[in-house]
Amino acid sequence: MSALTSTQTRPIWKRLNWNVTTKQALFAYAILFPTIAILALFRFFPMLQAFYVSLTEYDLLRPPKFIGLENFIDLVQDPLFLSSARISIMYVVLSCVPVWVLSLGLAVLFNRHIVAKNFFRSAAFMPVVMPAVVNAVVWTFMYHQDGVVNTVIGWFGVDPIPWLRSSAWALWAVIIIGIWRATPYYMVIFLAGLQAIPEEYYEAAQIDGASAWSQFRHITLPLLKPTTLLVMVMSVIVAMKVFAVPMIMTGGGPADSTRVLPLMIYQTAFEFFKMGRAAAMSIFLFAAVMIFTVFQIRLFARGEE
């Protein structure tokens, strides 16, 4: 907003050169302003405070005490924090990679002539619509030892799996829900990307005798690149912040096997009363997401005007 600030006494509108570009820029600033104002007050400001709090020892009830980087130094040596970070990374990788593959696969599936396409597409899309709390409660129910998931895998002769009662399986249980809920959303994005690829490319390839796989490999994938990047950025941001499902379903257990970083941050702040430490953890989380996103946006930027 530097264009508007001045110590001179002449009214702004007399000093400004009202050429078209300035006028447009002013309009652009004006319509952006309410968003910036609200976000500044209710997002940036709390974020800045979180940054400050990360440098303090703060139990929420007594005033924060400045301790410099102690929280950070402590965290990188804390096995519990490191194990939580590792679980978060595992969650992100093990849920996002299948999401990318499955959503692209489903998009390819829906990008052809199908009888009752609307029904199938709606059914596939349903997971996105379920509210988060309901989602966690219903799946808790389905994951029970004698529950519906084990019954279904039993049809294929698989022995019951102690989904939420085993430190080997609990993270997978959480990951499966993540995949279930995210895949249809990105499928729709991929679907649009596919529909934008001109049919002629494929026709030309068929004339050259290219196999279906080779068409997919040499036409579809390269042309989907911008869409793929978008899906990657969004899915990773969402996965890094996963909270409600492990919170309600497992509370982080058994034996810490599902204590993802956001859950650990929440518990450190509100169950252990260590806001400073929690804030420091979230700076790590923030940095991880930010680095990844900036990296992706730079890749994006190449395709833009």
């Binding site: 319509i31 302003f33 309410p34 405070q49 400050y52």
Partner: peptide, 22 residues
């Protein structure tokens, strides 16, 4: 828009001390 935003902010012109500390 400016007025609307200022009006919205009016009840607490300086909501938080500048140190960003609670």
């Amino acid at each position: 828009i400016l007025l609307a935003v200022i009006a919205a902010c009016a009840p607490a012109p300086t909501p938080i001390p500048p140190t960003a500390a609670p």
